[in-house]
Nucleic acid binder design. Structure first.
Lengths: 174, 174
DNA sequence: ATATTTTTGTACAGACTTGTCTAACTAAAT
DNA sequence: ATTTAGTTAGACAAGTCTGTACAAAAATAT
């Protein structure tokens, strides 16, 4: 594993479990087992690492959800499987919520570097959901339920918002 | 205005615009125009201030939404006015989103002091929405849309998630 | 009028933050 | 075989952070 990848994967773990501002460069390099010089050779600042982290996470997450839906749409409508994906990810990542929304809360409102990355991620997700439902009004309805379920399951450390949202969508597409 | 209140109102302003971890005690006392000794006389730690801030914010917010709905339910169903309230608050507070969800992203998953305060706030909101709709399934549906609209309007700095959510709820209760 | 509570200003400890720098070392590419 | 790119360990700068200490002053209560 290359140093650069070690940095990103360690940062992913730490940002996700502790938050962005609570994670220092020193902890990242210690946990990754690399030298500080290597960090600043690969990234010019912590903010640049943040952007790389979010971009990497975006690629990973979008690919995962599409794969998951492709592999699990048996008798179910594909859009319902999106909520199963959320369920699975909550379990896998211990209800740590959305990396993008978490960082949104930590940056100031006028940040012009990181904010667009987060907006692009959610826009891509929203557009992807539109491909699963050919009704634009319904698609945004599902998008809002999806986002609501995502943040509320993080808050309550519980799957009920996800299963509830899924059941609602089920009744909507019937 | 008492010193204690000056601290809480200054902290509210700063936490809301910059985030919790990005706001230091020194900035709070400078902006509030009080001595550091006074801060630690009134609060034993920054975390205790955070709890007080959230509790105060909870009282304020719950009273505001109830008042707003009471005063603005003309021909509209009360639940729809809840989204007008969100619209108004977004404008008033410049799309800074929910204080509680913002802090949720900044604390670690196992925090036992602040997390319950946030959970209680959202539980109270959820229960309040139930009093506006006598259908529990529908009420949670609206709750998830409300939360989705809240976080997405913060992300996009735009009211479209709120107006969209309102129109959806409108069609649901018809 | 005396006692208690609260506030002030400032200095300080100790730990932390991001980022720079250096000199030496290793691996990869030409 | 020699240049180039990447990594290392650690010291260091300059500033931040939370929280403590102390003596004096002011406000409030009895």
């Amino acid at each position: 594993m290359k140093v650069r990848d070690k940095i990103v994967s360690t940062a992913t773990e730490l940002f996700q479990s502790q938050g962005y501002n609570s994670t220092g460069i020193n902890q990242i390099i210690d946990d990754a087992g690399i030298a500080k010089g290597s960090f600043y050779y690969n990234f010019k600042s912590k903010e640049e690492l943040c952007v790389t982290f979010l971009s990497t996470r975006h690629e990973y997450w979008m690919e995962k959800i599409q794969q998951y839906i492709e592999n699990n749409k048996g008798d179910q409508a594909p859009i319902l499987v999106a909520f199963d994906f959320l369920f699975m990810m909550n379990k896998k990542e211990k209800f740590r919520g959305c990396s993008f929304l978490n960082i949104l809360s930590e940056i100031s409102s006028d940040n012009v570097t990181i904010l667009p990355v987060i907006q692009n991620h959610k826009t891509d997700l929203r557009n992807y959901l539109t491909t699963l439902i050919d009704n634009e009004q319904l698609s945004d309805h599902v998008y809002l339920l999806f986002e609501g379920a995502l943040i509320e399951s993080q808050l309550f450390k519980n799957q009920w918002p996800v299963t509830k949202a899924k059941r609602i969508v089920e009744s909507l597409i019937k």
